[in-house]
């Protein structure tokens, strides 16, 4: 998309004139501008960007090695009573710096979310598009998807971990697999609409191959809507991923992961609540901002919502 200039004040756009002629609606401002006009969305995007930046730059930002223990255990954040200035967000039960673990932890948490959504989204969308493209496949594929839909992600995660052993990879696979049915349904829905368009028939009429038709006409027309769905799905995946780690299935020590940090803090909930509360708040913020940002993106990008 080329950068459109804001033409609201341009002399070319004239309001409905005296004669009662209805002028064409003013051209819409650029989507980015519309997005940032929504205060909540702008704040959410900014916060999410900050969190992502912190995660990416963790090795440079973290004041300590996240696995390094110390004798200063269960210290509250430095701004609270009993806190020490060396540890801004305090330390956990092993004397590890919570801020450092948070930075590295959000890295892993976001990575799990991104890879799982990417993988699940790609496979799911492909299945959905294919199913819309070849109508004969549709009932079979969709019944299969229905079966997959009946497995909760957590159950799937538990089953996969039982087979593959604990670790990040089984969790990513479980999350990806659990994203497949949702993505497939959404992609199919969008593609069904596109398939009814005349340019598809036109393409067929001029003898384009299935591959070209699929790639150039169907995929390109669906991709933005699918991306919006995925951005919404991202928040959910992060939450389920953190839950699986909380249950001890995902990241293994000494790695830091937000769900695992919350789980470790559970032992200390009565005595040093910050150990569990801080990572939980960050999970909450990531999920919330991802959802708000996804919602806002849909509002400005989804052609079906444009009137």
């Amino acid at each position: 998309m080329t950068m459109a200039t804001d033409t609201a004040d341009s002399p070319l756009t004239t309001p409905a004139n005296e004669g009662g002629e209805v002028a064409a609606p003013p051209p819409r401002p650029h989507w980015l501008r519309r997005l940032l006009r929504d205060k909540a969305a702008a704040a959410a995007i900014l916060l999410l960007a900050l969190i992502c930046l912190g995660a990416v730059l963790a090795p440079w930002l973290a004041p300590y090695d996240p696995a390094l223990n110390s004798r200063a255990v269960m210290k509250p954040p430095s701004f609270m009573q009993g806190g020490v200035p060396e540890h801004l967000l305090g330390t956990d039960g092993q004397g590890r710096d919570i801020l450092s673990r948070l930075l590295y932890g959000s890295r892993l948490t976001l990575l799990i979310g991104l890879v799982a959504v990417g993988l699940g989204g790609a496979v799911g969308s492909f299945i959905g598009l294919l199913s819309a493209f070849y109508a004969r496949l549709d009932p079979w594929v969709m019944r299969g998807i229905d079966i997959l839909l009946s497995f909760p992600a957590i159950l799937l995660g538990l089953a996969l971990v039982a087979v593959m052993g604990q670790g990040i990879v089984p969790v990513i696979i479980a999350l990806a697999v659990s994203s497949v049915p949702d993505c497939a349904r959404i992609a199919r829905g969008i593609a069904m609409g596109v398939m009814k368009q005349e340019f598809i028939e036109a393409g067929r009429a001029v003898g384009l191959s299935d591959v070209t038709l699929f790639q150039r006409y169907l995929l390109r027309n669906c991709i933005s809507s699918i991306m919006i769905f995925l951005s919404l799905r991202f928040g959910q995946i992060i939450l389920i991923g953190a839950t699986l780690s909380f249950l001890g299935l995902g990241a293994q020590p000494p790695a830091a992961e937000l769900g695992m940090m919350a789980s470790q803090g559970r032992e200390y909930l009565l005595f040093a609540p910050h150990i569990a509360v801080i990572p939980s708040v960050l999970i909450f913020l990531i999920v919330l901002t991802a959802n708000v940002a996804g919602d806002a993106l849909r509002d400005v990008l989804d052609p079906r919502l444009q009137t």
Binding site: A67, L68, G93, Q94, R96, Q166, Q252, P253, P254, E267
Partner: peptide, 27 residues
């Protein structure tokens, strides 16, 4: 074992990491 033993092993893991031993834990 899981539970308080896992905390002990994690502390051992952190101590061993300081001398370059990469202890793997399976609770």
């Amino acid at each position: 074992f899981t539970g308080s033993w896992a905390q002990v092993v994690e502390a051992v893991q952190a101590d061993l990491l300081k001398v370059g031993i990469d202890l793997q834990i399976q609770p």
